Simulated scan of single mutants.
Amino acid sequence: MRVAVVVGGSSGIGQAAAVELARRGAGVIVTYSGNPAGAKDTVAAVEREGGTAVAFRLDVGRTEEFPAFREQVVSVLREKWQRETFDYLVNSAGFGGMAMFEDVTEELFDRFLRVLLKGPYFLTQTLVPLLTDGGAIVNVSSSSALPTGSADVGYTAYAAMKGGLNVWSRMLAKELAVRGIRVNTVSPGPTRTRLADADGVVGFDAYPEVIPILAGQTALGRLGEPGDVGVAIAALLGDESRWITAQNVEVSGGFGL
């Protein structure tokens, strides 16, 4: 059985990716930070698919937690799957929100940096010795950081970190190619997730008036759902994408076309 580590798997895109990977026969290790109930829901959803999952708490913004998390991964791989390595890594933890340039504080900037760029960078560095040769990584970015993306106001800090994630992913694909490890990025457009609100409100449900506006700006005529992105992540990790690496795939339903 193949095993995936899904970072930020307690809701939204990470949760959808974990469940889709389970449907495809993978065992799943998911992490959560402030949403333990959501992590339990993910594990239950995986088990309903006939799969196996475990959940561990991890704050991606705190690199000092990474060595202990690595040891948790090592232990559970041996105990539950009789493995020394895992096959897939999904970096999907994060938070959203906007702030006008003049209102971005160093504290907010550093929080974006820790969670959206520094965290994935050093967590991947910590875990990649356990990633099997021929494995795959998918990092979750944002259409706001694409050269063709919409340059909306209020996203200078957020999009800057996602842009850094995109460049890092491409460079990492080159370095890990010697081990046959593929690295790709998905860039969702507006998606119905908790990340739509930096204060932790359940996303667009708190702002229903925004949904028809965004749907009207999307070629396929609706807001994205976590499952739309989760299935793309699973496909990029799978053998059907074995010749795809260093790519950034926009998964937005044609937002802004």
Rank of each mutant, 00 (worst) to 15 (best):
Y88I: 04
L89F: 12
L89H: 03
V90R: 01
S92D: 12
A93K: 14
A93N: 07
G96W: 10
G97A: 12
M98Q: 15
M98A: 15
A99R: 14
A99P: 01
M100P: 05
D103S: 15
E106H: 09
L108P: 08
F109C: 05
D110W: 03
L113Y: 14
R114I: 06
L116I: 14
L116R: 03
L116P: 05
K118C: 06
G119L: 13
P120F: 06
L123Y: 02
L123R: 06
T124Q: 07
L127H: 04
P129K: 04
L130C: 11
L131P: 04
T132A: 14
G134Q: 13
A136C: 10
I137V: 14
V138C: 05
V138P: 07
V140D: 03
S142H: 12
S143V: 04
S144A: 15
L146A: 13
L146S: 13
T148W: 08
S150P: 07
S150D: 14
A151V: 11
A151K: 15
D152H: 10
V153I: 07
V153Q: 13
G154W: 07
Y155K: 11
A157C: 12
A157I: 02
A159E: 07
A160N: 05
A160R: 00
M161D: 08
K162P: 13
K162S: 13
G164V: 00
V167R: 07
V167Y: 11
S169A: 14
L172C: 09
L172R: 04
L172Y: 13
A173D: 13
K174D: 09
E175I: 02
E175M: 01
E175D: 13
A177Y: 07
R179N: 12
G180I: 09
I181G: 00
I181L: 12
N184R: 06
T185E: 08
T185G: 11
T185H: 06
V186N: 13
P188W: 07
P190W: 04
T191H: 05
R192K: 07
T193D: 10
T193I: 06
